[in-house]
Amino acid sequence: MKAMVKNKRFLIGGSFIVLIIISSLVYSIVFDNHIPVASITTDENGTITGKPPYAPWELPPFGTDHVSRDLFFILLIGAKYTLGLAFGIALIRFVISSVAGILLQLYLPTFLQKGKQWFEGFYYFPASILAYLSLFFILREDGYGDGFSTTFTERVIFEMIVLIVIGIPIILINVSKEVAILQRKEFIDSVKVLGGSRWHLLKVHLMPYLRPQLFLLFVREVIQVLLLLAHLGILNLLFGGAQLKTDMFDKAAYVSLSSEWSGLIGTNFRFLYTSYYWIPLVPILCFTFAILALKLMVEGMESVFEKKQIGRNRVEEKEKRIGEVTNKKEAFDSL
């Protein structure tokens, strides 16, 4: 852990994410989620020099949306929901599947080998389509007529469960693969010969190696969930369903129930081909920055592990270094 904090890339990415979440929380506590509204600007003579919606270069940093609310504050308020959701969903996904993956690989490896095939369908089922298929009828179609037949909390819980469940199989396979690689190490054989139980093996000998790998998988999973949320936003599936409201032209428009980022993309995507294209572009950019920050963390962690690995091998045996590089290849499997 110490080595990771010293790593520049990990530090930059991590502090960026922490900074966003903290400032979003502070803003909601201190200013009670107040969104400033930009007004028409005039010069001394009272002639109008600019009117909303302002572009990002007229009202930095992000400009305003079509009802002249300041986009920066909307996104700041939404950050805690989006990032919180992503971390929450990824964490639950991850805990369930890593516990199941480790135990299955240790106690029922043959069962896992057989059962693996039945999970392979998930590699051909894009997560966005799978999530859309399971959520569409509850979160969209149900609300077409006279509103939803379910309450908002029900829908949120339902969506959380769906988003958690569809991610589990692939992580489970990845975790079990990670364990299988460790099981091939020589010291595992000595543990077995000396009579260590499987639980002892896991607790004392596997966990020190697994812990950093699992943390890496977790951060990758957060990236995946963020991407999935952004995709669902493009597909206009708003978190917890949407309310049908009328916009300024008295046209029907879906309104996200919070200023959650994916909802902002979904509701504003129609502005992309107008001259107000920044309204959907800004949340997409925010997603991008969050994902890139997380990716920086991943890269930083990977380089730390690699250095550790090489250092360890130098002490043990120099020639084995080339063989250890296979660990790098595993990095792609989880994507």
Binding site: Q117, F119, E120, G121, F125, L133, S134, T150
Partner: peptide, 16 residues
């Protein structure tokens, strides 16, 4: 397995 996943995901076509 794809058919199973698809059928599982479309369970909610008629509500919850």
């Amino acid at each position: 397995s794809i058919i199973l996943i698809g059928s599982l995901a479309s369970l909610f076509q008629n509500g919850m």
